[in-house]
């Protein structure tokens, strides 16, 4: 019987043949599609459970207040800080681009519209995907692997009403509130930056902002915020509940939650823009 080829034998004889690795693309695509369909199906089932659990409002309302305080108050500083920088940088970039024959008040329109339509909702949602998405996935994942969720169920309690609905409601309600705060802070920072760096007057800024602003913009921002609120809560909750294999599984769920929620935010951003602004 011939000796099996190893890297050691190759060193000795110089006749090592690499093993043939075949990649079946159809198999990979098939498996990925099945996995994606399975996740989508289970998220849909979780959403149905959430809708059914809403009738148990005595259970979830007090817990939703606790969570809302955590999401809202806890995220306020970082949201304001990010919005302030985003507003100031947008102002400086607008000033850099709008030189020459373009009236300066156009820059005010760009700053306000950029903040309301895109930067306010998307940056706030991405921040919350990192902050509360990771937290929800880690909390629920730890509870899953230490059997706390099984314990809750074994006591005849509905884990969805106790754990999931308060988190989803808190995130979905508080994200639009935080977006409004981010819009105000971002526009204020943009105004201050444009005054100090671009030499724009108060009248120019107000004129430019009013010239481009339409009420639909505010609605669009709020609709996006609610959709993003669902994305940054439902996906991490689902991944937290699906956690397996101890501490490593909790780490995996947490990472997946942040990545999946962030990607979903960008995807929803593209879809909603196409649907609402075209």
């Amino acid at each position: 019987m011939p000796e099996p080829e190893t890297r050691e034998s190759w060193r000795l004889t110089g006749t090592y043949r690499s093993p043939v690795v075949t990649i079946d693309v159809r198999q990979i695509v098939g498996r990925a599609s099945l996995m994606a369909a399975s996740h989508i199906g289970r998220v849909a089932l979780l959403l149905i459970e959430i809708l059914r659990g809403l009738v148990e409002w005595r259970i979830w309302v007090p817990r939703a207040f606790e969570q809302a305080q955590n999401v809202g108050y806890g995220s306020l500083f970082v949201v304001m800080l990010t919005a302030a920088f985003a507003g100031a940088v947008t102002s400086l970039q607008a000033g850099y681009q709008f030189t020459g024959s373009i009236p300066i008040y156009y820059a005010a329109g760009v700053i306000v519209e950029s903040i309301i339509l895109e930067l306010g909702p998307v940056l706030t949602a991405l921040l919350l995907a990192g902050r509360i998405g990771a937290r929800y996935a880690a909390e629920l994942g730890s509870m899953r692997v230490t059997e706390q969720i099984d314990a809750l169920e074994s006591l005849g309690r509905n884990a969805v009403s106790f754990l999931i609905i308060p988190r989803v409601v808190a995130g979905t309600v508080m994200l639009p509130v935080l977006v409004v705060v981010a819009d105000i802070v971002g526009i204020t920072a943009g105004y201050l930056a444009s005054k100090s760096s671009l030499g724009m007057t108060h009248a120019d800024f107000v004129h430019g902002a009013n010239f481009f602003f339409r009420p639909l913009d505010a609605w669009y921002s709020m609709i996006k915020s609610v959709a993003f609120g669902l994305a940054v809560t439902v996906v991490p909750c689902y991944l937290g509940l699906s956690t397996k294999q101890g501490a490593e599984g909790v780490g995996r769920s947490t990472t997946s939650a942040v990545v999946s929620a962030s990607v979903l935010i960008l995807f929803l951003d593209a879809v909603l823009t196409q649907l609402l602004l075209q």
Partner: peptide
Amino acid sequence: KRRELSRLRSQVGYVFQYGALFD
């Protein structure tokens, strides 16, 4: 169904291996 199962579970106490206390 869920409500019936909840009622049944309220009659069946379960002691978990590591306590599974809500930390």
